[in-house]
Amino acid sequence: MDTLLVGLAGVVALSTPVVLATLGEILTERAGVINLALNGTILLSAMTGFAVAVNSGSLLWGFLAGGTVGMTVALLVTFTSLTLGQSQVAVGFVLTLLTRDLSYFLGNPYMGKQGPRLPHWPLPVLQDIPILGPLLFRHDLMVYLSYVVILGMWFWFFYTRPGLILRGLGERPAAAYVRGARVRELRYLYAALGGFLAGLAGPAYSLSVKAGWKGTISGLDGIGWIALALTIFGGWHPLRGALGAYLFGLLQWLSLVLQPQLKDIPSQVLQVAPFPTMILLLLFVNIGNTEWMQRTLAGLPPEVRRLVERALRALQVSPPAALGKVFREE
């Protein structure tokens, strides 16, 4: 029982960077901007955060540097697409490759160096709650910050007026504009904030759960794409997005734990398991939207149809209507 609890607590810690990146992307996309540069951003911010922390000896500067890298990349995406009218996907994709190569190139001198690490900081009182205490409250500061972000973003989105306007930016920017929202400025703002959050995911690895910088074998390449997929899987909802990130962490942990038990399955297969899972999850949440599925459903007997439809609708997600579209203030 205790070992299980310790393992699950590890899942919470390991999932934290993914939670931060996913929520950063959710915030950005809710405002109508796709930041496809997430994968490279996490690598570059992990490297930069580590390098800055090593040189300055300050963890705080390390995290701020990581966040700043994320914000800068997000602002580049936003500027080149919203202001200069270039394809958001193209810009994001180029920047994700560029930042990845930059992190390996600039990070070369820091490979394998010793660096500071965020200390454990069990929360007084809360850590003594049975089960929940060891599971949630015996971690480091970043983990607690991620809880605040999850709940804060959920509250912000659905229970505040600025949150309502934010959702409007991604759904019906024209309507938001008519009501007096400064669409372009707000999109810049939320993209920058989302980018900062995603940028924290880097140091959350390199200064905490996977401390250090190991270049191409850091094992961080691919995380950003997972976070982008989780944004879709989570239906752009902070709670569902975070849940997806924890499920992903659980899956990674299970593949490690089960490896000795499943000797017949080569270890490589289990390591890559998250990626086909990602495709399957996206399939489940999207298939209800396809014309093919709707046509098939129409041909089914009513009782079966209702059942299938209900199942699909429970999973189904649809993106903010104006996601990735440029809005011109006329």
Binding site: L36, A229, I232, M278, L282, L283, I287, G288, T290
Partner: peptide, 8 residues
């Protein structure tokens, strides 16, 4: 047929 974005 699955509505899955080709990027992912």
């Amino acid at each position: 047929y699955g509505g899955v974005n080709e990027i992912f």
